[in-house]
Design a protein around this nucleic acid. Structure first.
Lengths: 224, 224
DNA sequence: TAAGTTTGTTAGCAATACTATTATATTTAC
DNA sequence: GTAAATATAATAGTATTGCTAACAAACTTA
């Protein structure tokens, strides 16, 4: 069951790439091979040489699309947030109750991406896995300020802003809506990583997705 | 005003280093130079060659202390958590009210380190700054599971465990104490980074440390 | 079919991430 | 106080990374 019109096009900030990878066969192989290789060996160990080999191309060709591997990750993460904003708006369409909207939004931001959201040119399930463990590396760098000026984080900021607005609608007096939402987003990523690798930092509860339930509970209690 | 006995010794997990840096002059220069250089150029751009130059030593000498720069960061972060556990236990001594204990603990985990906690052989204020932006890189790697087996994250886990225990004392029915605390710790780090670089992801409130207040408020509401 | 564009091929260079060897201090042991 | 042990420095070397450049081949479009 697909929820989305399957020929939607996600428009990634143009400052990220030298040449739009969605515009060519090689570009798409770079992206899908990049997803696979990152999942296989981790982003740290990925090099354009290895990626070139994997997709049967050459280092130099990949460099024509992305300045460096950091930009490739930035592309993936930016794509993710543009797409997540779309999912968010789509999912909240025609729902008027602000509380219901908030709960749906938190669900989208904290639960793993399922197959029903798949798109033809991007394996969103793989992408989501990468975002969990690698996305914070995209902004925790010396280059944040410069990249931020180029607008590469605005999709993420808009997502946080949209959900914060719902909170403000519910309780205009609540002082920390942005902190609450960005805490939940980043936190959910971390918790999913922890539950796999450092379980003493999390809690497991039988029969529920503890991450989603925890953040729903936390947010609803925080804003009253 | 110093709160601590100044000749306390922080014992870092032995799997992290080849040779204990606290045991020699060169070792201590590696650590303090490492702090400075990381703050100057960021951990990504730090190399042992640059660090050697800074402390007037050689690459090969540094390699006798740490296998690679990742281990150096691991050392710093592990040191931080051992020390934070100490601060925590020290600060909660003789306080019996669980709620008061919790509030103090959250304060320690979310506020910036101040001068009063300084120790002779480690610039804890600098260390804290580094932890905010670099510590997650220490576990978001392919090597987590191996390193975790070596016990290098146990100080962090104990800190989370101790504060979770206070929560359980206050409300034994609360299902997510570990998630709540690890969310607050990591979240506070992120929020401090955001407020400097991506302010649209946070909220500023005049006349208060919004990060500390937000997490106190969030936690106290969550556990009732 | 020519011109333009994209990709592949090859080469090369500077920096990184180490390891090894030998020499020179410095510490400690007797 | 000297010998032995140990720590550090100096130098060199290797494989890999992170690029850039130049040209050739293929494929696209006008």
């Amino acid at each position: 069951m697909h929820r989305l019109i399957s020929n939607i096009q996600i428009k990634v900030n143009e400052n990220i790439f030298l040449k739009d990878p969605s515009s060519s066969n090689l570009g798409q192989r770079i992206i899908s091979g990049g997803l696979d290789l990152t999942l296989e060996i981790g982003f740290e160990d990925l090099t354009f040489k290895k990626l070139a080999k994997k997709i049967d191309s050459t280092e130099a060709s990949i460099y024509r699309y992305f300045e460096n591997k950091h930009k490739l990750l930035l592309y993936l993460v930016n794509w993710y947030w543009v797409w997540t904003e779309y999912r968010l708006v789509f999912s909240l369409a025609n729902i008027t109750s602000p509380k219901e909207r908030l709960i749906k939004a938190v669900h989208i931001l904290t639960s793993p991406v399922s197959d029903e959201w798949k798109l033809p040119h991007m394996d969103t399930v793989k992408l989501n896995k990468i975002v969990l463990s690698e996305s914070s590396k995209v902004y925790l760098t010396r280059e944040v300020d410069n990249e931020n000026k180029g607008g590469v984080f605005s999709a993420y900021k808009r997502v946080v802003g949209r959900v914060s607005d719902i909170i403000t609608e519910i309780n205009p007096a609540y002082k920390y809506p942005h902190m609450l939402i960005s805490t939940a987003i980043e936190g959910a990523h971390h918790q999913r990583f922890f539950s796999e690798h450092l379980p003493r930092l999390t809690d497991n509860v039988d029969g529920e997705d503890a991450v989603v339930e925890f953040y729903k509970d936390m947010i609803l209690k925080a804003i009253v």
